[in-house]
């Protein structure tokens, strides 16, 4: 979809979330020169176009007791990666699944998925289950558990400051 200037202002304004007030859309609108109705219609369009994957409460897994978070990476033949990616994504404990480029020789993996669990051993069981269910037992893979979290927040696309980056 084509984004209008207003859409872009809205994307920037809601980067850190909606205000927790009775009329959050109207309140955001006031900050960026839009009416509450315009904000709602813009969000609807972005949802319909798939630019917004979901609108709602974004939880932090760690604080909910999901202390173990692993990035599981696989080296899948390029002609199979889309099919495998879709199969892997269907599991509830998989929260992200992307194809990314390999960077040889440092990095041979092209499929990345995120698995959350309450304990490390449970995450490893889930990865094993995933490999069996998707026929990936023989595939080269690695499991990168998170240790310290240095930063976590919503994306701010910094749309207003485009000019200064030129």
């Amino acid at each position: 979809m084509g984004l209008t200037d207003k859409d872009r202002r809205l994307i920037t304004a809601i980067g850190k979330g909606l205000p927790l007030v009775p009329e959050p859309y109207a309140e955001i609108g006031r900050q960026i020169g839009m009416t509450g109705d315009e904000v709602i219609r813009s969000l609807e369009r972005m949802l319909d176009a798939g630019l917004i994957k979901r609108l709602g409460i974004v939880v932090r897994h760690h604080e909910l007791g999901y202390r173990s978070n692993a990035m599981v990476v696989w080296n899948i033949p390029d002609n199979e990666v889309a099919e495998v990616g879709r199969r892997v994504s269907a599991f509830g404990f998989v929260t992200l699944c992307y194809q990314r480029p390999r960077r040889l020789p440092d990095w041979p993996y092209n499929l990345f998925c995120m698995v959350h669990g309450r304990e490390r051993v449970r995450v490893l069981e889930q990865v094993e289950h995933l490999a069996e269910a998707c026929g990936l037992e023989g595939v080269e893979r690695d499991v990168l558990f998170s240790a310290r979290r240095f930063k976590q927040r919503g994306a701010t696309y910094c749309l207003k400051s485009t000019e200064s980056a030129a």
Binding site: L20, V59, R60
Partner: peptide, 27 residues
Amino acid sequence: LERLTADGTVSRVGAVFKPGGVGESTL
């Protein structure tokens, strides 16, 4: 929601954007 945001359980109430849909991103 204010309390759960303050204690960190909730990151925000808002939109999850499709990566690459608005702007660019990388890992």
